[in-house]
Amino acid sequence: MKIASKVYTALVFIFLFAPIVILLVFSFNEGRSLAVFSGFSLKWYRELFRDEATLTSVRNTLLLAVSAMVISTVIGVAASVGIERLRAKWLKTAINTVTDIPMTNPDIITGISLMLMFVFAGRLFGLANSLSFWTMLVAHVTFCLPYVILQVLPKLRQLDPALPEAAMDLGCTPWEAFFKVTIPEIMPGIVTGAIMAFTMSLDDFVISYFTSGAGFQTLPIRIYNMTKKTVTPKMYALATIIFFVILALLLISNLTDDDAMAKRREKKRLKGKS
């Protein structure tokens, strides 16, 4: 049984990583083939760094992801606190139902729906092409918001309501109590939500595809346009770089964070108690 499950796990991971390994290996291929390795070369990496359009799209993607992350985190955290405070149950249910929509609807429908509204509004204002950086930003904030709220709300439920009350008894105004007590207490949820928003925005293709204009290309859109034709291996070089960046980020956050942070937090708590 033990051996069987090890073999099974290995097979699944081979399936998951086979295409990635092939991309990694063939990004160093001298020739263009993805089937025959004709010799080691770094020329596709050199080509990648000479490709202005791709580099611009990387910058655009980061700009968009950071903006979407900041806006959706600010609005989302405020909204979560508001939702948690609501007394009217029907209103709570209504807001939660609407928040669920972008998460359960297929991306293609979210994309099409926003596109139709932007196009319609564009016609109304007499714009020939209303799709731009701004429409993409609106779209990205919209699909990021539910993930922020989803991360922050549970943390608020765990928060002891006596804490902000105690702060107010000690002379804080309600807003001071909010910023000095509530926000620091729910910080882990805020950080996870912000990271999720950032990565969702970074990785999104479908919604971007429908809401982007000709002037502003993100990396996924650039990759889509590249894969319409036969691809040069510089895209594999790009995939390889992305792979190592993600690997590093995931290892840092998953392997060090939990152990070290948990220990540090525990220490802090013990100190606070004594």
Partner: peptide, 27 residues
């Protein structure tokens, strides 16, 4: 981590890789 890596790698590139793998003259 191993399961999440493919999730965060652009799915267009990974799908394209499958296209080349499955081609008649592919790997």
């Amino acid at each position: 981590v191993l399961i999440m890596i493919p999730m965060w790698m652009n799915f267009l590139i990974r799908t394209y890789a499958w296209m080349t793998i499955l081609q008649d003259t592919g790997i």
